[in-house]
Amino acid sequence: MAVAYELDPTFGRVVQGRSGVPILRCYFCQKCTAGCPVAYAMDYKPAQIVRLVQLGQKDAVLSSTAIWLCVGCETCGTRCPNQIRLAPMFDALRYMALEGGYKPEPSVYALHRSFLDSIRLWGRVHELSMLMQYKLRSRDLFSDLMMGIGLILKGKISFLPERIRGVSQVRKLYETGSSEVER
């Protein structure tokens, strides 16, 4: 027999409050899972994540890969019979995972960090330097190399970044109180 869950109903309320999504309404029809384009690659499926949140299984949820694989396409939220938008819930769960020191899915996290760093530096994303940073961060130097070269040859990736004039203002926007982006 599997180890019994100890229930913690308070966790669901916290996630509900933080995401603004009425998670406690879910009656587990699994329409979200059925329509999710990336569910097949997730460890827990979207409806299971909602259920685990309701049951207060904080560790299982915050260390899952599912919360990093959600692409925010809003298919689930558009179709949910209970107006539960899972994308904002997944956002909130990612924030809570980072705050709680749970290990994120490394490549996804590396990309997001590199992307935000690039904006902080230039005001806009500069693909080439962002990609180089991502490659170093994720220690995945060679994948997509040929594709990248192809795009460079087609003139789709510029070598030199352009910095916007209001970049200092953009940097000020980064002071949100979140250790994650200020780091």
Partner: peptide, 14 residues
């Protein structure tokens, strides 16, 4: 109370 949550397929104890 020994029960189960069949939605996640796990036993629960309260």
């Amino acid at each position: 109370v020994w029960g189960a949550d069949t939605l996640v397929g796990r036993p629960v104890e309260i």
